[in-house]
């Protein structure tokens, strides 16, 4: 049985113009535990919405939220909010949000927030909770006294690590990280990535890493899923995707990365992602695809296995 299986996940927001289809029929099988799945896409492709959908942390203006997420033998979408909160939330699946700087309540000490759930329910003494917080912070490479500081007293890099500590403290099996390193300078980026790698190797935590930075994904991910226009375009083992991309979108994406050596110039994608409120029929990439042809504009492409465990949604591969 797969570690986590997402089937046909939909998330639409309500807008004045109509429903905005942020996640459209997302299906994916995260096979093994302890691996990292990377989800890559441009801004506006629905990555963050996807993360929120998996976490069941959707905002108030949602019009459609359906699908199924099979995990530990249960469909998470079928659980009541209370059940999800009691069993899964943060205990099995936790998250590091985008813009981690603001993950913290500005008027409460960092440590208290890191182990907050312990404090409120399970009758742990404050002193023990404090020690727990301290050790967690140490795990992510922060000094123990950070626990007693306020969020505004932390530097940028520290503010990035603390949410990771917070995500860890109930020892979840899966952590979803949404852009954990954007808006950080490169050296801190490297530190965070190293931290994540350590967590992966030492604690065996599965991760879903959402990013627009392909280089980052290539550094740590075992599997990569490529999203465009709220739909999954390609999915497979990281090596395959990076070295031998099959879908035109992925190819274009990779071609846009500048190379350090050689004189291939980076190619860019013209145009803009399609409108998610009224997307065109057929493939979401049709307006920008170099290999676009008839069926692309009419029907959505089928999801085909073009290589072992490597899938693509493109008409080019339909026979």
């Amino acid at each position: 049985m797969a570690f986590m299986e997402i089937k046909d996940l939909h998330l639409y927001y309500e807008t004045t113009r109509g429903p905005l289809r942020a996640v459209e029929g997302f299906s994916l099988s995260f096979q093994e535990e302890g691996k990292t799945l990377g989800i890559i896409g441009e801004s506006g492709s629905g990555k963050t919405s996807l993360s929120l959908a998996i976490m069941r942390s959707i905002p108030g203006n949602v019009s459609t939220y359906q699908g199924s997420i099979l995990f530990e033998g249960r469909d998470l979408m079928r659980l009541s909010a209370a059940e999800f909160r009691k069993d899964i939330r943060w205990k099995k699946i936790s998250m590091v949000f985008q813009g981690a700087m603001n993950s913290f309540n500005p008027v409460i000490q960092v440590g208290r927030q890191v182990v907050e759930r312990l404090l409120s329910g399970d009758g742990i003494s404050p002193r023990k909770a404090g020690r727990e917080a301290e050790s967690l912070l140490e795990t992510v490479g922060l000094s123990r006294d950070v626990a007693y500081r306020y969020p505004h007293e932390l530097s940028g890099g520290m503010k990035q690590r603390a949410p990771i500590a917070m995500a860890l403290y109930l020892k979840p099996r899966l952590i979803v990280l949404d852009e954990p390193t954007s808006a950080l300078d490169v050296s801190i980026q490297a530190q965070i990535m190293n931290l994540l790698k350590q967590l992966k190797w030492n604690l065996g935590i599965s991760m879903i890493l959402i990013t627009h930075d392909i280089a980052l994904a290539s550094d740590i991910c075992d599997y990569i899923a490529v999203i465009h226009g709220a739909k999954l375009m390609e999915y497979g083992p990281a090596e395959n995707i990076l070295i031998n991309p099959q879908g035109p979108y992925t190819q274009k994406l990779l071609a846009s990365i500048p190379r350090l050596h050689g004189d291939t110039r980076p190619q860019f994608l013209s145009g803009a992602p399609c409108d998610l409120v009224s997307p065109p029929p057929g493939c979401r990439f049709q307006s920008r695809c170099p290999s676009v042809f008839e069926p692309c504009r009419e029907k959505e492409p089928p999801w085909l296995e073009v290589a072992p465990a490597h899938w693509t949604g493109c008409w080019l591969y339909a026979k």
């Binding site: 905002p59 943060w90 205990k91 998250m95 008027v107 917070m166």
Partner: peptide, 29 residues
């Protein structure tokens, strides 16, 4: 609407705790 409130909810805190500690307490100043 602040981010930390979404995070607090994601952490599995009850709505009462969220509104008391993460909304009201922060809105107090």
């Amino acid at each position: 609407q602040a981010d930390h409130v979404t995070v607090a909810r994601a952490k599995g805190l009850t709505e009462k705790v969220v509104s008391r500690r993460h909304i009201l307490r922060v809105a107090a100043p």
